[in-house]
Nucleic acid binder design. Sequence first.
DNA 1: AATTAGCACTTAATAGTTGACAGTGCTAAA
DNA 2: TTTAGCACTGTCAACTATTAAGTGCTAATT
Lengths: 336, 336
Amino acid sequence: MLSRRQEVILKAIVEEFIKTAEPIGSKTLLEQYGLNCSSATIRNEMNYLETEGLLEKTHASSGRVPSTYGYRYYVEYLMDSFLDEKEKYQLQTFFSSDLPLENVIQASCDILSNMTNLTSLVLGPDANRQSLAHIKLFPLSETSAVAVIITDQGHAENKTFYFADRVSVEDIQTCTNILNDYLVGTLINDVVAKLNEIKPILERSVKRHEILFNAFVQAFVKFASDNVYFSGATNMLYQPEFSDIEKLREIMKMFDDSTLWKKIGTSESSVKVKSPDNKGELIWVNDVAIVSSIFNIGEEEGKLMVVGPSRMNYNKIVSILDFATQFIESQYKKKK
Amino acid sequence: MLSRRQEVILKAIVEEFIKTAEPIGSKTLLEQYGLNCSSATIRNEMNYLETEGLLEKTHASSGRVPSTYGYRYYVEYLMDSFLDEKEKYQLQTFFSSDLPLENVIQASCDILSNMTNLTSLVLGPDANRQSLAHIKLFPLSETSAVAVIITDQGHAENKTFYFADRVSVEDIQTCTNILNDYLVGTLINDVVAKLNEIKPILERSVKRHEILFNAFVQAFVKFASDNVYFSGATNMLYQPEFSDIEKLREIMKMFDDSTLWKKIGTSESSVKVKSPDNKGELIWVNDVAIVSSIFNIGEEEGKLMVVGPSRMNYNKIVSILDFATQFIESQYKKKK
DNA sequence: AATTAGCACTTAATAGTTGACAGTGCTAAA
DNA sequence: TTTAGCACTGTCAACTATTAAGTGCTAATT
């Protein structure tokens, strides 16, 4: 258990380090924060905090830096989680409510990375958990057609395809009917399998069945594909802790690997902590910290994340993230 | 006018520098390339090439590095523009022909950045030069609908929208009819203006006209939006000349500015040269070189570009780029 | 008993020094 | 015209002081 003064010192060190990215010494701490004791006392307390694993030294005679555990303690017990009025105002102007729903999520992600000067990303909503509501197919010319695939959640995906020779309007109509009869209500995940099942039926009734068939498979694969959106990756170039090019390469490799982000939060290998309001989650992996928050729209859920150096303004980021997820959810309810 | 030997030396320096990224001295040149003269002669020739502005020194007693003008001379007169068999084989396997047309261009871009280990990007085809062929609008639920917008080139864009209250199927049908009557054949560029013209007509016939109206405006804006696709931006992290973080920031800023890439090639401020086969174009801007090649599909044109350090393997890149543009064009013709 | 002043000690970062080395330009000889 | 030879130049890496920031400990103070 920490004493009041120890907590004040820890809080000051974390916040000062978040600002400056430099190790903090007893003297600067005394000057910046009006603690009514001497630097020697602070040194003693710092020493204690270090034995408790909350602080670290970069070398024997350097100032202190918060350890991951120190950040964790800070987030759990010490952080004030309120935005000041100026920041609240900024949030409200950024999140104006006339964004089209399809873009709300990506736009939120963009705003997030802009406001934090960090990288943010959004996972899902996972299209695989939706089911098929309609397939519409209509001729474009004598040798081409557009298919529009719509899910029960109202997402739409379209795909143009081209036939080597003419295709009749009736053929397309027959095909649409067959597909709708057999596939409506199927989970997107299972559509490709089911498509294979009804292949013989298509074969009987439709002339250019294999072209149509392949086009549909492709369209559904596109639907199910990655679903990870990044914003502000280059902000990492401006973080002093990532000024080493080797470190940057590592981080960009992380960004490139979309499977990594899907796994994050599911494995228990990393230090993890719930944010104070119990909505978000904080994870430290290698040298980055990830703040994440889940949003629900309809049956589906998605995850908004902010990635940055361990030294990041948790307070501010958790609040903004919270605002963003609430915004997404509210927009969804409104439009629905 | 350069002598034969001077050209051989220049060619050797450019190619050696492309390989090693190090300044080349007279001695290494003699060892690597079997020139039947002494290092002193080479030094004399190098000196001459420097006075002609084809070579540069990084400092008074360093080896030589090609200048921009040197690269230019190399590309214009000295470069052999053929790929070896291995590279040709690699190209053919990468560009397998069963890519769906919509993805052909982006996929080509990805392959390009993979093969070159550089950044590649594609501009256009410029949707604004297409005209509207159909608008299809169908109800999704009682309070939502999908609009599908199709151009004469067969591109499709879809947009879901939501009404605050119920909307009848007839209303949607009427709206579709009006829009088709007035807008079919209009250039995408002009659609928004024309949409404003027919606003009064919509107003008379359709109940929720302003929601429909806004949704369409948004859909068309999306159509006309950026249209720049990047691939392999992080490859820049592995170029030795960009190991300086300040340089990297500069380059990433360039990448972020999509308007810049649209302008490139149109301004005459930068050093520019046609590639030997007269298809592509080479531009040097700041510390990057840009190789670009235009492809035509139907009435439209697009531009494929590869971006890298000045020291890049022009020979290889020009050939690959050439292959890629031809591939895109052939795929288009085939599907059409 | 807790706090603090004072001091010896540690380490990183900076600047200067040195020698090796890679490369040039020039001169004089072939 | 070419080349051997040599003096000269700038970079790089290793080494050495020097300084500045910060600690831990001890003894004095409250």
